[in-house]
C-alpha cells in the first residue's frame, strides 16, 4: 500500500506531462481546423450578408473555426516534398550515427583498455562539453567555420583559398556528430568496462590473435552497447532542428525544422502534430527492430552472431 502511495506523484507527473501532451498531439494530429461553413448572400441593396449553417445571418464575415476529425494531414504528409524531407532526415541521422559509431567505438575500446592510465580524465573531457549549453556549442562551430571565421582566416594566412564549410548537409552532420558523440561513447564505455578481461586472455590463450579476439569476444559482448548507442544518437538526430537551422543556415531543412515551422511561422499545429506522430511511428518501429536484435543476442546464451 505504501509503495503504491509513493508511486502516486510519479503517476501524476506521468499523466500530466506525458500522457496529456501526447493525447493533445494525437488529437491535433488527426483533426483539422477549418472555418465554419457559411453562404454569402448578396442583398438587393448591394450589401453582403453571411448565412451560417443554422440559418442565422451575419453582417460581417464569420471568424469562427471548427475542428473536425480528418486524416487529410496524413495524406498531405505523403506529398513528395515531405517524404523527401523525411528521407533526408533519416539519411543525415544515419550518417551521424555511423560516424559516431566509427569514432566512438575505438574511443571506448581505448578507454577501457588494460593499463590505460588517464581513463577518468578522458571520460571527463568527453562529458565536459555536455555541461555547456547545446546552442552555445553549435554557435561556437559557426564562428569557427563561417566564411569569415577562424578556420578560413587560417587557411588564407597559409595561402589557401577560402572554403565554404557551412550551409550544406555535411555541416549539419558535423554539428550532429559533435553534439551526439558522448551519447555513443558512454553506453559503449559502460558495456565494455564490464567485459571480463579473463575472457580476452582465454581467447588469446586458445590461439586468437588480436583481430580474432575483437571479432569473437569484444564485438559480441559490446553489441548491447552498440545498439544502445545507436538508439541514443539516431533518435535525437532524426528529430533535431536547431543544428540543421544553424549549421545548415536553413538550406538543409530536416523534418524537425518543418515540424517546428508548423508550430511557429506556419501556425498549423494540426499538420505539425501529424508529422510529429508519423516521425514517432517510424522511430518506434526502428527502436523495436533494434530491441529485438538486442534481446535475441542477449537472451539466449548460445547465439553466435558470426
Amino acid at each position: 500500500m505504501r509503495a503504491k502511495a509513493m508511486l502516486l506523484p510519479f503517476l501524476l507527473w506521468l499523466a500530466l506531462f506525458i500522457l496529456v501532451p501526447l493525447g493533445l498531439v494525437v488529437y491535433y494530429g488527426v483533426t483539422v481546423e477549418e472555418p465554419i461553413p457559411y453562404e454569402e448572400i448578396m442583398r438587393a441593396d448591394g450589401s453582403v450578408h453571411y448565412r451560417l449553417a443554422d440559418g442565422t445571418l451575419r453582417e460581417s464575415e464569420p471568424y469562427e473555426t471548427r475542428t473536425r476529425f480528418s486524416l487529410a494531414n496524413v495524406s498531405r504528409f505523403f506529398d513528395p516534398m515531405y517524404v523527401k524531407l523525411m528521407g533526408r532526415s533519416f539519411y543525415v541521422a544515419f550518417c551521424t550515427t555511423l560516424i559516431c559509431l566509427l569514432l566512438g567505438y575505438p574511443v571506448a575500446l581505448i578507454l577501457t583498455g588494460k593499463g590505460f592510465r588517464h581513463r577518468n580524465l578522458l571520460l571527463l573531457l568527453i562529458i565536459l562539453p555536455m555541461w555547456m549549453n547545446f546552442l552555445l556549442r553549435t554557435y561556437a562551430w559557426l564562428s569557427l567555420l563561417e566564411n569569415s571565421g577562424l578556420v578560413n582566416h587560417l587557411l588564407e594566412a597559409m595561402g589557401f583559398a577560402k572554403q565554404q564549410f557551412l550551409y550544406h548537409e555535411n555541416a549539419v552532420v558535423l554539428g550532429m556528430v559533435y553534439n551526439f558523440l558522448p551519447f555513443m561513447v558512454l553506453p559503449l564505455y559502460t558495456v565494455m568496462e564490464k567485459i571480463d578481461h579473463s575472457q580476452l586472455e582465454a581467447a588469446a590463450d586458445l590461439g586468437a590473435n588480436p583481430f580474432q579476439r575483437f571479432l569473437r569476444i569484444l564485438l559480441p559482448f559490446s553489441l548491447p552497447g552498440v545498439l544502445e548507442g545507436i538508439t541514443m544518437v539516431f533518435v535525437p538526430a532524426v528529430t533535431t532542428f536547431v543544428i540543421s537551422q544553424l549549421m545548415g543556415g536553413g538550406k538543409v531543412p530536416l523534418i524537425g525544422d518543418i515540424i517546428q515551422q508548423q508550430f511557429g511561422k506556419a501556425n498549423d499545429w494540426h499538420f505539425g502534430a501529424t508529422m510529429s506522430l508519423l516521425v514517432m511511428v517510424v522511430v518506434l518501429a526502428f527502436m523495436y527492430a533494434l530491441n529485438r536484435a538486442d534481446t535475441e543476442n542477449a537472451g539466449k546464451g548460445e547465439v553466435r552472431i558470426w
Binding site: S198, Q199, D205
Partner: peptide, 15 residues
C-alpha cells in the same frame, strides 16, 4: 601452451 583459468573464463555467449 594452454591455460585453465581460476574462474574458468568460459565464453558465456557460446555453448
Amino acid at each position: 601452451i594452454n591455460t585453465v583459468f581460476q574462474r574458468y573464463a568460459l565464453f558465456p555467449h557460446m555453448n
